[in-house]
């Protein structure tokens, strides 16, 4: 392939996926803009947002990568069944996704304490992360599996689907569930 053809083939292949991710990112931005006022109630909230969004990609990107190589290797079937490998992969993602959400709350609290900045109560930050983490895990894990399975059955290479699906779903649902969690903790705390 000539360099020019290579250039256009990469560009054409990646552009639609990145445009979908851009749409998800702008939607998440609208939700984020709505949260600007809540930062004064919960100082430290904005520290958690990029970390929370990045973590969604790390946990569920890894799950997606594992599932798509499992499908390629014929280790798992593209259906929701009680297969031990599939169950383990899903359970591990729940543990990782929810566990790391709690870690984010604690780390944020510690970092702001060390910096000497104003910070919300530890239990408030952890509660927001825990609620948002649990809800996002459920939607992302089952949404991701359903989309990968459907894609695999209709002949798409799951490797090309995982990254953009995770980024887009993670941005949209991550921010929506964080907004919900902030509202809930505001009422309860």
């Amino acid at each position: 392939m000539s360099a020019r053809e290579e250039f256009w083939s990469i560009y054409r292949e990646a552009l639609p996926i990145l445009l979908v991710a851009l749409g998800g990112g702008l939607f998440a931005g609208i939700v984020l803009e709505g949260m600007v006022g809540s930062v004064e109630r919960f100082p430290g909230l904005f520290v958690m947002i990029p970390v929370f969004l990045a973590t969604r990609g790390n946990v569920y990107g890894a799950l997606g990568g594992r599932i798509s190589s499992g499908l390629h290797q014929g280790l798992i079937e593209p259906t929701f069944e009680r297969d031990e490998r599939l169950v383990n992969a899903v359970a591990a993602s729940f543990i990782n996704g929810i566990g790391i959400s709690v870690v984010i709350g604690v780390l944020t609290w510690l970092a702001l304490l060390i910096l000497g900045w104003e910070v919300a109560a530890l239990y408030e930050l952890v509660a927001i992360m825990l609620i948002a983490g649990v809800l996002t895990s459920v939607v992302l894990i089952f949404g991701l599996l359903a989309l990968i399975f459907a894609g695999f059955e209709s002949g798409y290479d799951p490797d090309n689907l995982v990254g953009p699906i995770v980024t887009t779903l993670g941005d949209i649902f991550g921010m929506l569930f964080m907004l919900f969690a902030i509202g809930l903790v505001e009422v309860l705390a």
Binding site: V39, P43, G44, L45, F46, V47, M48, I49, P50, V51, A54, T55, N58, V59, A62, A92, I95, N96, G99, I100, V103, I104, L107, T108, A111, L112, L115, W117
Partner: peptide
């Protein structure tokens, strides 16, 4: 295998969060 890496990544991205705050 995954959890320790996730914690390291969190610490890295914490910088982005502090910038945003």
């Amino acid at each position: 295998n995954m959890f320790p890496l996730l914690v390291v990544l969190c610490v890295i991205v914490l910088w982005a969060g502090i910038t945003l705050e």
